[in-house]
């Protein structure tokens, strides 16, 4: 059996196992829908590009500030599917983070409850591949917050644009400066426009555009099978 197929099985198996334990709610609905076939191509699938803004890098101690998401449907980024939620987190925001995320305390106060935002994301994510830039953050935060809300850490099927770029450059055997893997740097290397507003939605869109540029490097373009793109869990 191919190693890719094996990891597919494990994700599906994890999903089925988690489904048995999960209480009623959005997470259950997420887990009820099978993951897509790994032999399916980008042009056949709908991906959900997701970006989180957080107060820090540690999912155990830091908080989710906002969630942005947008669908890539058959290789087209559909703005109509865009979703941007600011979360009403507890406590004051640190000044440093305000600078980075441009989310102020007053905006945060008008935000929605964490559970509402996460549930909305889970429903949108059901049966889809999740596209992110630097999977670690989104994976840890989403799994942790699901654990806190539902007692279950769900499996996620993910494509990471950072990993795709890393793979591409590693193949060339070049030495590189790690900062080239920042979303903005990679976009620049593809001559994609610079975006000025850094919020979760814009970054989710920026990631999707980078993804389309990245798979354009593959021989089959949008006809590339996702098994070639998924990050191993």
């Amino acid at each position: 059996m191919w190693p890719f197929f094996e990891s597919f099985l494990s994700a599906e198996q994890q999903r089925k196992r988690a489904l048995r334990r999960v209480p009623e709610g959005a997470l259950k609905e997420y887990l009820s829908v099978p993951f897509p076939d790994k032999n399916a191509t980008i042009s056949e699938l709908t991906l959900l590009s997701v970006d989180f803004e957080t107060t820090g890098l540690n999912a155990m101690t830091h908080q989710l500030l906002s969630i942005g998401s947008i669908e890539i449907d058959g290789g087209k980024i559909k703005l109509a599917s865009s979703c941007h939620n600011i979360i009403k987190t507890k406590g004051k925001l640190e000044a440093n983070n305000v600078v980075v995320h441009q989310i102020t305390d007053s905006e945060k106060e008008q935000g929605i409850e964490l559970k509402t935002a996460v549930d909305q994301l889970l429903l949108a994510l059901a049966g889809k591949v999740m596209l992110v830039h630097y999977a670690k953050i989104e994976r840890q935060f989403l799994r942790q917050v699901c654990f806190e809300l539902y007692g279950v850490r769900p499996p996620l099927m993910m494509i990471d644009t950072l990993l795709l770029a890393k793979k591409r450059l590693d193949i060339g055997g070049q030495h590189y400066d790690p900062s080239i893997f920042r979303l903005e740097s990679l976009r620049q290397s593809f001559q994609l426009p610079s975006y000025h507003a850094h919020n979760a939605l814009n970054d989710a869109i920026a990631t999707s555009e980078l993804f389309l540029a990245e798979i354009n490097k593959y021989k089959q373009g949008v006809k590339t099978k996702i098994r070639q793109l998924l990050c191993s869990v």
């Binding site: 042009s43 449907d73 058959g74 290789g75 087209k76 980024i77 559909k78 703005l79 109509a80 865009s82 869109i205 999707s208 555009e209 389309l212 540029a213 354009n216 373009g221």
Partner: peptide
């Protein structure tokens, strides 16, 4: 208008409209 826009990436030397 913006909400009805979709974004596409088309490789160099391709014909428009893109397939599909």
């Amino acid at each position: 208008l913006t909400r009805n826009i979709y974004i596409q990436y088309v490789a160099s030397n391709s014909s428009l409209p893109p397939e599909g």
